[in-house]
Write a protein that binds this DNA or RNA. Structure first.
Lengths: 340, 340
DNA sequence: CTGAAAGCGCTTACAG
DNA sequence: CTGAAAGCGCTTACAG
């Protein structure tokens, strides 16, 4: 690196005190215009850059947001991250990220790591219903915003999609298409997303006057493999479901794998839906009916709330933002043919 | 936030000087075991956490890596990012990221922003052949590693895929399948990836004794839309190509769109290949023959080199790592049928 | 509008 | 093995 100039070098060059330089740097208006110009010239001449670390230390603010995410390479989270990044940048914040792979001990390690790097606040997109490390931060009044998923405990800031409604609507949609044997491959029950979607499905069954059949509900991780395994089971049932609501699009992808392997045609023999409207899900071997969330916006909003919290330390009441999802109809399900 | 204890509070509690506490914190071996225990107990009792900002200031190191990326929400870059993150975490570094959307002025803004946040070094995954902001950093001896793409200038650290070879191999593969009319929809010519893949294609044509036909080469951005537009043109030619080598998988996706629209069947009427082996490209409406790169590993290696550079300031010679790509054969192209 | 003083919480370098 | 001194480069709060 080239040799670093300090604020005092600039001051000497400009013939003022270092305090005046500091004022110019911070756009303090209490500087005579001619003085400001002298200082700006000195800054330009020396190609001076203020020392970020010194400033962070003096102000007790790093302008750093810690983003704890399930997996940055998962497109869903990558899109949230982009929403977070853009808004953070706008406000002069940087965001550091850490992937947990959904493991609580990694969440804890990430938090510790970020505390050591000195973030001003946290965004979590990947919490389980219980997550001690996160709950401790909240209890300590560290600025925290949750995105996508919620904790079981209640008083904190969050931005989520109305997963209950999304699941309810899509199940009702299948019902309205004429299906009565509707199975659900739900995500993990210790995640708020999986839980809420399951609740929505159940409520829709009830409101449709359909019985809940335990063998039609399979819970597991939100993965293609889990979807594949679950579909193999469901499609092997004697009384096979006519429609499957998948807890997310990756699960639906696994269902497609299984269906293809078992010679089950979608949508002829099986109506299939997903959840999330994952990028490109419109282009899979069968175009997927699904539920879209405003993923990017969730990230955006979270940063807004977080920065408000950091600046105002206004932790008296919790921001609870619930966005509405939207049904996206594609070819993977169509009205049930009236055979018999 | 709860009230912060300092190193001096711990010292007082433990009945030692703050220097001794500092030593314990930094695993300095020159501390008597009994003293160390006293200090550790005091740290635990107060639930003391060292102040990251003060430490960064005192050591002149933030343990922060700046990652400048085209778009974190693009799965290709998200995977590189994950490779970077994991290795960084291992070494106690955090990574802050900034997306540029391939715009030079945004690269510049990101660099400025990261300099202000005080990173110890940079990783760029998205440079154009010329990128003044990056070249300036390199000239100033700031630790920098490029990943995926190279600059035109020569003396710096980089980790890339052998794009020339990947393109060469896949073009030869098409030739060996019996195709003679092979078009290429290349990425942008001011990116090293696009350029090298085009060179590989050209060399393969030459070595195959095939003439280069200008109307068979279309250059543009690495996007689905660009692929679509280019394919519309190519497929409308009087002497239509029998095979299209797409500069990346997204372009190939656009080709599929165009082919579907124009009633051209893949692989029956048109052999198609991509580049990158994008996740799930095995599951598109037509499974794509493509070239795979070790994306995650590129990120991993880059961090290794960057940290070496930061620690040793060993900038005398440049690390140039070139990884070999691999041909992935799937159903989107098959041997040319011998008709006439 | 400008400056001298004190301090943010650590670490480095030296003394013992 | 332990401690007193000085300093990293800024900003905050006060004085003028």
């Amino acid at each position: 690196m080239k040799k670093k100039y300090t604020i005092r070098d600039v001051a000497k060059t400009a013939g003022v005190s270092h305090m005046t330089v500091s004022r110019v740097l911070n756009d303090d208006s209490l500087v005579r215009e001619s003085t400001r110009e002298k200082v700006l010239k000195a800054i330009a001449d020396l190609d001076y850059e203020p020392d970020a670390r010194a400033r962070a230390f003096a102000t007790q603010k790093s302008q750093l947001i810690g983003l704890v995410v399930s997996d940055i390479s998962n497109p869903f989270y990558a899109e949230i991250s982009r929403g977070i990044e853009d808004k953070a940048f706008e406000h002069g914040y940087s965001v550091i990220f850490c992937s947990t792979d959904e493991l609580c001990h990694r969440t804890e390690a990430c938090v510790k790591h970020m505390l050591r790097t000195g973030v001003d606040g946290f965004i979590f997109t990947s919490v389980h219903l219980k997550e001690p490390a996160v709950e401790k931060l909240i209890a300590d009044n560290v600025p925290v915003v949750l995105v996508n998923r919620k904790l079981k405990s209640s008083n904190y800031h969050y931005v989520v999609c109305n997963n209950f409604k999304g699941a309810y609507d899509i199940t009702r949609y299948l019902f309205n298409l004429g299906y009565r044997k509707i199975a659900m491959i739900s995500g993990s029950p210790n995640l708020s997303t999986g839980l809420d979607r399951l609740k929505g499905y159940r409520q829709a069954l009830e409101d449709s006057g359909l019985p809940e059949r335990p063998e039609y509900i399979i819970q597991g991780p939100f993965t293609r493999d889990a979807g594949y395994a679950a579909a193999k089971k469901l499609l092997a049932l004697k009384d096979r479901p006519e429609a499957i609501f998948s807890g997310n699009d990756y699960i639906a992808m696994g269902v497609m794998d299984a269906a293809e392997e078992m010679g089950v045609s979608i949508p002829e023999d099986l109506a299939l839906t997903g959840f999330d409207n994952t990028k490109n899900s419109a282009r899979w071997s069968t175009k997927l009916t699904t539920v879209s969330q405003e993923i990017y916006e969730m990230g955006n909003l979270a940063v807004q709330i977080l920065i408000d919290t950091i600046d105002r330390k206004n932790l008296d009441y919790a921001h609870k933002v619930v966005l509405n999802p939207k049904l996206i109809v594609r070819e993977s399900c169509r009205a049930k043919p009236r055979k018999e």
